[in-house]
Design a protein around this nucleic acid. Structure first.
Lengths: 215, 215
DNA sequence: CGGATCCTTGATGACCGTCAACGTGTGTGG
DNA sequence: CCACACACGTTGACGGTCATCAAGGATCCG
């Protein structure tokens, strides 16, 4: 699709939707790598040798079945940290969704990050387990509602949500097909719950209705 | 259902199906609590103040929706550690499935367990994310196959698997109803893939067939 | 402006949930 | 030791939800 580009550049944080968490090692300078849309940050089976903090853009973490079915287990946006799924070897793929800048913190070799990583791992664990409830026990409307609420919350609970990812990504995150995602969006529009300014920019008109659906 | 019983007794490990992991604090003696079937170990909303190691028996971790739908996110058996879902406050319930002994390691108050907890949290994270793939992208047969393979692996890959949990628990773990679980078991019997010695004791006759299904 | 990708909408059917009835296993008390 | 009762599990009939297949429309890029 896209060739992987991993240029080492120093960039300021452009879209800090969320205050970046404190740098694991404080004042030490760490390189920012730039990834073009669709390019791979790491692959399943690779040795995990760093953790990554999103400076701008968005990242998807996913796994594949042999026949190509894909499950996105998490999205990560500006300020969020990822890269510790799997102790030694990555069990997942990480890809840039858009043009994305990622700050790299090399792990191992003396420095001890476990104090910083534990809370991040626990947060990831909680998120994953909450997502299990969505995939295991909620229907299509409830899944989309939960997704929109989560996106809204992570963007500061504004009325406007922008979705950096495609419908395919949303479907593969929610365990649905893109057609079902699209139909649910249409139904939510009909009901006056949301409004689409563009394909990837959504306004939430009735937050309570969403909450009632997403539980 | 059952009254909660939490008697502080010292018990030897009875069913060490798996070698217990090293005690987080080595030589210090820690109490073993006994829980009767169905009794609560901790509840959603409680402050997390300990981690727990299963001595014998089995534990289910789950979450509920308002209308009672339940999603079991994990089972834990002898030798396994749980209790760190949620940083400060538990976001989940933990219940004993059978008569279960649990060794309690209190957290906080000086002692620093983060070095011990991080690998456990990462393992839990990986398991949860793998389970996301099952719930999001696999059909009923594939889910049950994956479940049986996981159970077999955690019991040392013997031909005989014993399931400490009910069909309801299996259904709530796999995002299926008990009827569907039952039907899949029957189909696997018809195909000669498994054999039921009793309701909760299963013999795997064709491991390869299971692998082909569970991916 | 043109082409490709992404998204939407419709028709159809498969899979699995629901409801219901029956079978099986387990524990208790007579 | 047997009888009974209750929880658990199985099987069948049916319907709803969502996947699949297909076509057309919107959007974005050069």
């Amino acid at each position: 699709m896209y060739a992987q580009t991993s240029i080492q550049i120093e960039l300021p944080s452009v879209f800090p939707r969320q205050a970046p968490t404190a740098s694991p090692e404080g004042s030490v300078a760490h390189p920012v790598s730039f990834f073009s849309p669709g390019s791979e940050i790491y692959a399943q089976g690779e040795k995990a040798k760093a953790v990554y903090q999103v400076e701008f853009g968005a990242v998807r973490i996913y796994r594949l079945l042999a026949d190509g079915r894909r499950q996105i287990s998490a999205f990560h946006f500006a300020g969020e940290t990822f890269g510790f799924e799997g102790d030694i070897t990555h069990h997942f793929f990480a890809e840039a969704i858009n043009s994305t800048g990622v700050r790299v913190f090399r792990v191992g070799s003396g420095t001890d990050l476990s104090h910083h990583l534990l809370p991040l791992a626990l947060k990831g664990l909680t998120r994953a387990q909450e997502h299990l409830l969505v995939l295991g026990r909620q229907n299509a409307i409830e899944r989309v509602a939960a997704f929109l609420l989560d996106m809204a919350e992570r963007q500061g609970d504004l009325r406007q949500i922008d979705l950096p990812m495609s419908r395919i990504d949303i479907g593969d995150y929610l365990g649905l097909t893109i057609e079902t995602v699209s139909r649910v969006f249409s139904r939510l529009k009909e009901k006056g719950v949301i409004r689409l300014h563009s394909l990837r920019r959504i306004e939430v008109l009735k937050r309570d209705a969403l909450r009632a659906m997403g539980e």
